[in-house]
Design a protein around this nucleic acid. Structure first.
Lengths: 178, 178
DNA sequence: CTAGCGATGTCAGTGACTGACATCAGAGAC
DNA sequence: GTCTCTGATGTCAGTCACTGACATCGCTAG
């Protein structure tokens, strides 16, 4: 991707939109017709991710707890990222180096939370459970994804997600008889 | 606060930095010496919030579970916001109306997570528990704060935080014997 | 009185982003 | 085949957030 190359080579701040557009063989104006802003280039995939996760929530078997539904939904995105592992790592490195990109990533995660809460409600999960399960899901995905990126052993993302889910359940359950 | 007035009157996007600075009786250049960017004006208090919460984590009695420590820490910020209720509501309305401000808010919450995880580690809570308890805390604060803002009955923030914590523990514990 | 320092003002510049208008290439009507 | 209509792209001018360099000013210590 032209933008990722530009950010890697020149750094996010230093890479001018004109430069990115130039690498892609288009005009700066055209760039802004495709992406709402300079940061958005790195988040094209988030819409697809959202569809995969909400789809998995809708398709989950009946009778599961909301926590189990959301955990499985995020396990389901494993293959999606497995195909993009190299890209995901490069992208993460750029994002980690830039606060404004981190901001955007957190915003996408927030949008994902809302979409997942909606999907859970559609499934018949009432609030506050839907909202809280969606928060739970965002947490295990966020932490699990980070571990996957950092993990040189390259275990699957799904494995990390399930593991974080288990850890979080154990931690929180331990506080139940407070 | 001049900036909040400007954002309320003119809208965040339309309010020019020159206009905000003018209301405060200073120059645009001076504005940027006080705040790193236009959005940052609304987040002056986040540093104080961070100190209150991390302080409460450090000061919590020994022997509590990490989940209980973090819940108490966020209960402790109740008085801080009680004094600023009117301001907090106006501010929230402006932030809710602007995606770029929401981004910044999420970034501050992320910083708070990291600081809290550090504070827990300092207390002797090992990872992954420290990280996950910090995530748990961000969730209950985020949801509890929103309820407090929306709650016309004006129950205290601490009450909302405790309640969300209880709900989340119940929800997650229910999934324990998965 | 003065030397020095921190805060502010002034000015010029860069780059993200937008609106208005021109151009161009391809799909379908005839 | 050419005409036309539409969607994508280029061009241009403008606004505004943000920055660096330099001047100024008020206060405080000596």
């Amino acid at each position: 991707m032209a933008a990722l190359d530009a950010f890697t080579d020149e750094g996010f701040e230093a890479a001018t939109v004109a430069s990115i557009a130039g690498r892609a063989g288009v005009t700066e104006r055209t760039f802004f017709r495709h992406f709402t802003d300079k940061r958005e280039v790195l988040f094209e995939g988030s819409a697809i991710l959202l569809e995969v996760v909400t789809g998995a929530i809708a398709a989950a078997p009946a009778g599961l707890t909301p926590i189990e539904v959301i955990t499985r939904a995020f396990e389901a995105v494993g293959p999606f990222f497995a195909e993009r592992q190299v890209f995901a790592r490069r992208r993460s490195a750029v994002i980690a180096a830039n606060t404004s990109l981190l901001e955007r990533e957190l915003l996408k995660l927030q949008a994902l939370k809302h979409a997942n809460a909606d999907a859970l409600r559609t499934r018949g999960v009432p609030d506050p459970d839907a909202t809280l399960a969606a928060e739970f899901g965002a947490t295990i995905f966020h932490v699990g994804f980070q571990r996957w990126i950092d993990d040189p052993a390259e275990t699957g993302l799904a494995h990390h997600v399930r593991r974080v889910s288990d850890e979080l359940i154990a931690l929180v359950s331990g506080a139940a008889p407070a």
